[in-house]
């Protein structure tokens, strides 16, 4: 819009200010993750913004190496929680993408499943806590509590609306002529879907799957309710990293937080173009 030098100065000032507010919390955690124990507990005067003696001890500690400076030892390492987060998020993404993509195609091309858009939008609207009592009872009954596959099933259902809406908008955008040509050549409709449509949709499928994966990976509440010990995910495990003797294990938590935070940020930047579409249920495209 306006292009006076004063405006440019104003623009950069505000953006740089926003940039520092954005970065400070992240940088603080990153710095904390590489701090040795004496630098953890900052009491006012000796707060260090950057580690004086950077170390990988925090990462070694959460993966089970005992530390000479910490009296506590972990009764379990971060390995299994990371595995739990990965397995539940990946398989939850598969469930959501397979059922969501096929339903989106069924609705977009054949007008099947008219009730799905409303039902899935409602699913997105409700706070999970308002419906968790029956889920917890059912999961306990089916032996799904505290398993990664039980968690994956809930994730698949919770993120199904996103997979469905994303893929529906992609299918709606896709020209029908190409499929029609294949139909004329005598392919069955199912074959056209599998052999023509899906391969053409490789890029949208990939971005939708990554989007859904980020959502699953970010969950804390559902894992908190449905896992207890064996298959706790990273955030649940992270919250348990404190002891009565040492209090908060700041550095260890920060190290784990960094491990949890990096994948979604990288994936999110990779699919930046489709974020708006995903977040607004396809109402808005970029």
């Amino acid at each position: 819009m306006t292009r006076s030098p004063a405006f440019e100065i104003f623009r950069y000032t505000v953006i740089l200010l926003a940039l520092s507010v954005t970065l400070i919390p992240t940088l603080w955690m990153t710095s904390m993750a590489f701090k040795p124990i004496p630098e953890w507990s900052a009491s006012g005067a000796d707060l260090t913004w950057w580690p004086n003696e950077p170390t990988l001890d925090n990462f070694r500690f959460i993966f089970g190496e005992s530390s000479s400076e910490l009296i506590v030892a972990l009764d379990r390492t971060a390995g299994k929680p990371i595995l739990a987060s990965l397995l539940s998020a990946v398989f939850g993404t598969l469930i959501a993408m397979i059922s969501g993509t096929s339903a989106a195609y069924g609705l977009s091309r054949f007008g099947a499943g008219q009730s799905l858009p409303l039902a899935l939008t409602q699913l997105r609207l409700f706070p999970p806590l308002a419906v968790m009592i029956p889920v917890m009872i059912m999961w306990a009954f089916l032996g799904l509590t505290d398993t990664w596959w039980g968690l994956a099933l809930v994730y698949g259902i919770v993120t199904l609306p996103f997979a469905f809406w994303l893929m529906k908008t992609f299918f709606d955008d896709m020209p029908y002529e190409i499929e029609e040509a294949a139909l004329v050549e005598g392919c069955s409709r199912f074959r056209v879907f599998m052999r023509v449509t899906l391969p053409m949709m490789r890029a949208p499928l990939a971005s939708s799957a990554l989007f859904v994966f980020i959502l699953n990976w970010s969950d804390y509440l559902i894992a908190l309710l449905l896992t207890t010990r064996e298959w706790v995910t990273i955030p649940v495990y992270m919250a348990s990293l404190s002891s009565s003797m040492t209090g908060q294990l700041y550095g260890a938590k920060a190290a784990l937080g960094l491990i949890a935070a990096v994948p979604p940020v990288i994936l999110g930047i990779a699919i930046q173009r489709h974020l708006v579409r995903g977040l607004t249920f396809g109402a808005l495209k970029q």
Binding site: T22, T26, I214, P235, M238, G257, V265, L267, G268, I269
Partner: peptide, 10 residues
């Protein structure tokens, strides 16, 4: 855009 991609628990 980064903050919205950080896991909320983190």
């Amino acid at each position: 855009l980064m903050p919205m991609m950080v896991v909320p628990a983190v």
